[in-house]
Amino acid sequence: MAAFETSNQTSNTPVVVEGPYGPVRLKWHKLRTHLAEAPFKRSNLALGWQLGASLEVDILATADGRFAVLHDPTLGPSTTGRGRVPRMPITSLRGLFHRNADGAPDPDAPVLSLAEQITPLRGRPRAPSANLQLDLKLLEGHPLPDSAIADAAAAVAGLEDAIVVGSHHLDDARRLVAAIPGARLGYDPMLAVSRQPGLRDPERLLRHIERRRAGVSLAYLRFDAIVAAESQGFPLVARLLDLGIETDAWTVNPGRGIGHAILRTLVEAKVRQVTTDVSSEIFSLIRSL
């Protein structure tokens, strides 16, 4: 299997690998390029923007209707703060940092609002293939306010064509995309699968997505759901492609049984994007198939 890297003189961090059915993008999960590093590093965002990477940041609404770049609704222990984000104003997050795998705060990974995270991109060159997925996180009992929608739209103004909005919560993701003309829409049905065990059947999962496909260009599927569908002889990923929907397989990191066999299945299923914290390792594994 032939492969190539998109890089420049400052880095050879891979962003895509050529597979038998075309390129497979390697999305930097939480902006990570190494599993041990802190999430949402500013330098990785800038690097990926320049190299043409698919990049991901998670966003959570704060008590005052702003978006913060955070994965978890509780600040500790993944950051230097404490408390529940939906109960806090955005100003309460100032001076906090994300921690790396050893628990050390990383000064290159401050806890920022979405606007603060994105602002430096406006002064940097962008490779044509670079895109930024806003992974919309929502909590039960905390509806997404209109003010947060407006906050996100203002934060990405001028960069709309690089934005992808993905979420388990499709209706709210649609609201956000409607406020960001040019942004693409992604749907992650795995929360629905956890609540409706019948959707573990790949044909029923396909019908579930098909009924909701209007405007959806990406489906985010847990990698083992794809492997299970393929093992049952049902080409879920290929059927989604027939609907005009590409598949992102998440989260694929070496270990826990993820090796050549799993990656071969994903690639041969025609997955178009792989979410990973270790793009270089996944690149090398796919290249060696």
Rank of each mutant, 00 (worst) to 15 (best):
I258C: 08
E230Q: 14
F67H: 09
P14T: 11
S194A: 14
V156L: 02
A109S: 13
L139I: 03
R126K: 13
E246V: 11
V267P: 07
A249R: 09
V237N: 02
G166Y: 03
A192V: 12
A179G: 09
E56Q: 11
P235S: 00
A101S: 15
A109N: 03
G215Q: 04
N253Y: 04
L170V: 10
G233D: 04
R25C: 11
A238C: 05
L136F: 08
P189Q: 04
G255K: 06
A192F: 08
I286C: 05
A2T: 15
E281V: 00
S54K: 05
V278Y: 03
D277M: 02
V15N: 01
F4E: 14
I262C: 14
R174A: 03
R82A: 13
A2M: 14
Q196W: 01
E116K: 00
R126S: 14
E281I: 04
A63L: 10
T275P: 06
K137S: 13
S194L: 13
A152F: 05
G198E: 15
G158Y: 14
T74C: 07
Q133G: 00
I282K: 02
G76E: 13
T80H: 09
D146V: 13
L221F: 09
P23T: 05
L31W: 03
L75K: 00
Q273M: 15
L114N: 04
L241C: 11
H98C: 02
A53Y: 04
E5Y: 12
I209Y: 03
G81T: 01
T91N: 13
S54I: 00
L132S: 12
I286D: 02
Q196S: 07
D248H: 06
A154G: 15
R272N: 02
L240V: 04
